[in-house]
Simulated scan of single mutants.
Amino acid sequence: MKVHAYVADSAGARLRPHEYEPGPLGPNEVDVRVTHCGVCHTDIGAIDDEWGFAKFPVVAGHEAVGVVEATGDAVDRELLPIGLRVGVGATAGSCFACEWCLSGRQNLCPRRDDVIFRGLGGGFASHIRATDWRHVHPIPDALSSADAAPLFCAGTTVFTPLLTHGVRPVDRVAVVGVGGLGHLAVQFLAKWGCAVTAISRTRAKEADARGLGATDFIAAGEEGALAAAAGSFDFVLSTATGDLPWDAYLDLLRPQGKLCVVGVPENAISAGVMNLLPAEKAIVGGIVGSPVQTRQMLDFAARHGIRPEIETYPIADVEQALDRVRQGTARYRAVLEL
């Protein structure tokens, strides 16, 4: 089988068509013919080599949706029949032997198959291969393929902390950043039953945030706005990609509150110890969910009508889509149609 892909040959290069042979299908592997693929900021990071991990030539894309085209001999074909509509996200395999996998936390497996680190093998292509079928997720009928694509990274990244950190419907929660991650987080938390406050630098996205389910809004750039909300929240989810005044955001928390960081700041996180210890506050990280958590997220989104706001582009316009994400002007996720 030939895979027709779009590759970057060096950091920041424009994508070009490329063909490669993925090799024989392993016993647990699944080939998915891609119909849609989301464009995440992490894809930009790989193409531009922002973090120094890119393997060139690189095929980006880790929010792939399509149909099962071929399966290995050990794949449960009743669960993944040929032609089934599925998604392959940021994690496409794990060892299923370590303590993390055996306890249902495959997203923490030290040997997990992170699509973004593959080089060749991403979703900006005719096909994507999952190295383990248990990381291939059937898509509920209520979700269109274009809407489902961003859920395989952005969606599971903001949904999983609700499960991992025990966010309750009675909690008061703040979402920092109303963008590709944040606009989904507001929806999930509102449907979860929380009182949700959206935080953005200005009021430009206030109407959007309230329309998505936020009950309140804070413009962090307004003098005294953060200080006025001190001690208000049980959980603060930061989806922002820039650096924040971390002590000011810790001040927003009630005792034993958590500041969960899922956006990637540019520099190290620094906070005063006296903002953590006396009230037992915590700073925690968040990543994409396990297979079970990802499927729970898909089911929750389907049942509650949660959808990303997307811009769709034919694969021929991939550079336009990349530039929109690169410049932070996409409202709110870009999706490629292949």
Rank of each mutant, 00 (worst) to 15 (best):
K258G: 07
E222H: 10
L25Y: 02
A5Y: 01
A240Y: 12
E99D: 15
T329A: 09
V273P: 08
H137V: 09
P22Y: 03
R77A: 14
L162N: 02
L15W: 04
F96C: 00
A142E: 14
L336S: 02
R201W: 02
R112L: 15
Q106K: 02
L162A: 13
E99H: 12
G87W: 00
G180A: 03
F233L: 11
K281R: 15
D208A: 11
D9Y: 11
R85T: 13
P265R: 05
P138R: 05
I116L: 14
A174L: 09
V273K: 01
N107V: 09
A279Q: 15
A220T: 04
G286A: 09
D9R: 14
R172T: 14
A154K: 00
I116H: 11
R331I: 09
A195Y: 11
G213I: 09
H135N: 13
T202Y: 00
V186T: 10
I218A: 03
Q293C: 04
S103W: 04
G155P: 05
G285F: 08
D114A: 14
G182A: 11
V136N: 02
V196P: 05
R33A: 15
T35A: 05
V30A: 09
A204P: 01
K205P: 08
P22Q: 07
G328F: 08
T197W: 01
G87H: 00
S144C: 04
E29M: 06
V175Y: 05
